[in-house]
């Protein structure tokens, strides 16, 4: 290759001016890597052409700069792929097809609305369940609060006496108190520690009035012990006792099964 001949063949001009064919371009770029004088010739022509391009040129209108700066500012905040996706949208807008835009907007609106509706529906179901749960919890708390309030009244009531029930000898160790209101005859049994019974048996609380046992009620020991039972009509009770009876006992106390007993101050 005679590089001087090549340089003066007009290829430099046709390459720089974008008139060379693909093959000529590839060859030129390859030769530039080998011949610095070819690069130099290219540079000189490029600079001359550039200089001419700045001569006596009209001013572009100022609003174009504003548009361009706005464009790049808007698009640098979004990512690259979004910019590329915008390209097909341009001819769409230019075709003046407002209906298409409306259709696209409608579909987007529909999708967003459906999604919101679905979310609100799910949220409503969740909220309803939570509300139901809260109501139940509140009812439970109300019941327990009522019991505690009764208990509190009973404890601070000067007419209420505490009767300690003591376990009978040779029976399992147990602990329970009777809060006894001698004026209203209400009785509260607070069980602190009593063994669980087989399922066919129940404890039964008795009051001794005028030497006779009066049934105050059958009860079970549950896991959540500290049972508080409210029992009535125990005026003149001399003592309280707890026996173990058959479940649903209707007859008198089985004194062999007397577990605990406590005398009142009467």
């Amino acid at each position: 290759m005679n590089i001087k001949e090549y340089i003066s063949s007009g290829i430099v001009q046709s390459y720089v001016m974008g008139l060379a064919s693909k093959e000529e371009q590839a060859e030129f770029e390859q030769l530039c890597l080998e011949y610095p004088e070819l690069v130099a010739a290219r540079n000189i022509f490029e600079l001359s052409l550039e200089k001419r391009a700045f001569e006596d040129t009209p001013h572009p209108p100022a609003f174009l700069k504003e548009q361009f700066i706005n464009y790049i500012n808007q698009n640098t905040t979004t990512n690259q792929s979004k910019v590329i996706q915008m390209e097909p949208a341009i001819p769409l807008a230019q075709s003046g097809s407002g209906l298409r835009w409306l259709a696209v907007a409608s579909v987007i609106f529909l999708l967003v609305s459906s999604w919101l509706a679905y979310r609100f529906y799910n949220e409503t179901i969740t909220l309803k369940a939570e509300l139901q749960h809260t109501k139940e919890a509140q009812a439970n708390l109300g019941t327990r609060l009522k019991i505690l309030e009764d208990y509190e009244k009973m404890v601070i009531n000067p007419n209420v006496a505490v009767v300690n029930l003591t376990p009978m000898p040779e029976k399992s160790p147990a602990s329970a108190n009777i809060y006894w209101d001698s004026t209203t005859s209400n009785v509260y049994l607070i069980i602190k520690n009593m063994p669980k019974l087989p399922s066919d048996k129940q404890y039964q609380l008795w009051a001794l009035i005028d030497g006779k046992p009066k049934d105050l009620g059958l009860f079970d020991i549950k896991d959540d012990h500290k049972v508080m039972l409210k029992m009535t009509d125990t005026r003149k009770a001399e003592a309280f006792a707890i026996t173990v009876e058959k479940r649903g006992n209707t007859s008198g106390p089985d004194m062999d099964q007397l577990q605990m007993m406590g005398k009142t101050q009467l």
Binding site: D56, P58, H59, P60, K65, F68, I72, T76
Partner: peptide, 23 residues
Amino acid sequence: HRNNQAFTYLYDNYSKALYGVIS
């Protein structure tokens, strides 16, 4: 590096020449 200031500089310095060629 998509420096917008550089693009502003580019516009200020080259828009006139390119506009001339386009025209």
